[in-house]
Computed example of a mutant assay.
Amino acid sequence: MADADHTARVRPQVNRRATSPTLFYRPEPAASTLSDVNRATLAIVHVLAQCVAALGATKRGEPARLNAWPLPQSTVQGLSAALKVLKERDEALRRSCREGGGA
Rank of each mutant, 00 (worst) to 15 (best):
R26I: 08
L42W: 09
S74W: 04
S32P: 00
V47T: 13
H46M: 09
V52D: 06
V47H: 01
T41N: 05
Q13C: 10
T22G: 10
A18W: 01
E91H: 06
E99N: 11
F24M: 09
A81F: 04
H46W: 09
A54P: 01
R94S: 07
A8N: 13
R39K: 15
E99W: 05
R89L: 04
R11T: 13
Q77V: 06
R39D: 12
R26M: 08
R9D: 13
A103F: 08
V76S: 04
D90L: 00
H46S: 15
T33I: 08
G100R: 03
P70C: 07
T75R: 15
A64C: 12
T33Q: 08
A31K: 01
S96Q: 11
R94E: 12
S32K: 08
L55K: 11
Y25K: 07
S96V: 00
A103Y: 06
E88W: 07
P72S: 14
A30I: 00
A31T: 02
V45N: 15
A57R: 06
L48A: 01
R9Y: 11
D36M: 06
P12F: 06
V52G: 04
A49Q: 09
D36T: 02
M1V: 14
A82V: 03
Q77W: 09
A30S: 09
P29L: 05
L55E: 13
Q73Y: 11
L79H: 02
G102K: 08
A53R: 06
A30Y: 08
N38I: 04
T7N: 08
A64L: 01
A40V: 04
R65C: 08
R9K: 13
V37K: 00
A49M: 05
H46V: 07
M1R: 15
A54H: 01
S74N: 13
V76Q: 08
S35L: 11
A8Y: 10
S96C: 02
V47D: 01
V45W: 08
D5R: 08
T75V: 14
V85A: 11
R11Y: 15
N67R: 12
R9N: 11
D3Q: 12
E91N: 05
N38F: 15
A53G: 01
N67Y: 11
A82N: 08
V37T: 05
S20R: 03
R26F: 03
T75E: 13
L34I: 07
S80H: 05
S32A: 15
L86W: 00
A18E: 11
P12K: 05
R17V: 00
R39Q: 14
V37A: 03
L86C: 00
A31H: 02
A92P: 01
I44C: 02
F24Q: 13
L42N: 15
A31E: 06
R17C: 06
A103E: 14
A2Q: 12
T22E: 11
A43K: 14
R95G: 05
V76N: 03
A40Y: 10
Q77F: 13
K87I: 00
S35C: 06
K84C: 10
T19S: 13
A81Q: 12
N15M: 00
D3M: 12
S35F: 13
A92K: 02
D36W: 05
L86D: 00
P12G: 04
V37I: 01
D5H: 09
T7L: 11
T41V: 04
R94I: 00
A64T: 09
E91P: 02
V10L: 13
D36I: 05
R94Y: 05
Y25T: 04
R95N: 09
Q50V: 01
A30E: 14
A81G: 10
E62T: 07
D90F: 01
